[in-house]
């Protein structure tokens, strides 16, 4: 739709610049040259040799924020993706251990199964919001904590690999590994497929489809939805289900493509990093890909800067928080 806010441009600039500013200030604090820090951040995130790793990092962010952007369009503030990713990953690993030898079919089944588990987990706060009026921000936050404990129980108890001393599942059989497609990198099929599928899908669904408008009506509240003949309760549950499904898939791709097993640390805050991307994507879906890559690159780059300049690792939380705030001026549409 042609109506475009000038806020978008300023907002985008803020998102790009704010983390740089934060990094610079932090470097000054610890007596490191800000220019050098930013150099390492960009080198670590965006130099040609690092791009494959950045894409790898961007993939779960991209997949998760696709689902979230649909939920945010309906003003359903799902912030529970982190837990949904984790449970999706564990579910994938669990079913994958039973599907060894099935090859591609096994990969597809376990990916979808992971998605479904993420979706079911997300449906609980969805149901609470739809039928009990419970604020989904809280319930999803609580569900994140619960997911952590559940994962801890599963990975230390029933699902723990008999050969591992640590909380992790056994390694999947080799035929379920989604192997790197480009030699010398870890770029697998998921990393190549997600931008190709998800970026256009987001654009079409958010900006060019009737679904986008339906979701916006849901976001206007139950009464207005009913006026137009939408059952808001069902729609909220369905939206949560969908966003949880995609978060679960993001967990699956991490298991099948990278770790080949489930670990408690499978999601590196992707559930939180996806929030600013989704907030923006629900307004301007074309930005979902560049933003995911930018965030993935900055997060990777901060690690490299940390490695080269001995900056305390608390920096990465600061950057994430600042990115979240920075995405907000664009999202003000209440």
């Amino acid at each position: 739709m042609p109506a475009r806010s000038p806020r978008l441009v300023t907002g985008l600039l803020i998102v790009v610049l704010a983390p740089l500013l934060a990094i610079s200030i932090l470097s000054l604090f610890s007596g490191v040259n800000a220019v050098e820090t930013i150099y390492w951040v960009f080198w670590g995130g965006f130099s040609p040799t690092q791009i494959p790793e950045t894409m790898l990092r961007a993939t779960p962010i991209l997949i998760t924020s696709f689902g979230l952007s649909l939920a945010y369009l309906a003003r359903i503030w799902n912030i529970g993706s982190e837990g949904q990713i984790l449970l999706g990953a564990i579910a994938t690993a669990w079913i994958g251990l039973h599907l060894g030898g099935l090859g591609v079919i096994g990969v597809i089944v376990s990916t979808i199964f992971g998605g479904l588990c993420g979706a079911l987990w997300a449906s609980i706060p969805g149901l609470l919001r739809a039928y009990r009026g419970a604020n989904e921000v809280f319930s999803t936050l609580m569900m994140n904590y619960l997911a952590l404990y559940l994962a801890s129980y599963l990975l230390q108890g029933p699902l723990r690999s008999p050969t591992s001393l640590f909380p992790e599942t056994a390694t999947l059989s080799r035929d379920l590994w989604v192997e790197p497609l480009i030699p010398g990198t870890r770029v697998n099929a998921f990393v190549l497929l997600s931008p190709a599928l998800i970026a256009p899908a987001t654009y079409i669904l958010v900006a060019r489809s009737t679904l986008g408008i339906k979701l916006r009506v849901i976001g206007e509240g139950a009464e207005k939805a009913r006026y137009f003949g939408i059952d808001a309760g069902k729609a909220i549950v369905a939206t949560m289900f969908l966003s949880g499904f995609l978060a679960g898939i993001a967990g699956s791709t991490e298991v099948l493509g990278i770790h080949h097993r489930a670990l408690p640390s499978i999601s590196q805050g992707y559930g939180y990093l996806a929030i600013p991307v989704a907030v923006i994507a629900s307004l301007e879906p074309r930005l979902i890909l560049p933003l995911s890559i930018y965030l993935g690159g900055v997060v990777n780059g901060v690690e490299v800067a940390q490695m080269n300049l001995s900056i305390p690792s608390g920096a990465s939380y600061i950057i994430q928080g600042i990115l979240l705030i920075a995405s907000l001026p664009m999202a003000m549409r209440r």
């Binding site: 806020r7 300023t10 907002g11 600039l13 803020i14 610049l17 704010a18 740089l20 500013l21 610079s24 200030i25 470097s27 000054l28 610890s30 007596g31 490191v32 040259n33 800000a34 220019v35 050098e36 080269n308 300049l309 001995s310 001026p329």
Partner: peptide, 30 residues
Amino acid sequence: STVIVLIIIAAVLSLYILGGALSPSPQKGS
């Protein structure tokens, strides 16, 4: 937001300059 963007740009620029001036050697801490 325009003001914020301007502030950020100004701050980043001044940090670059400050950063250059403050650290005697780019190798420090590296």
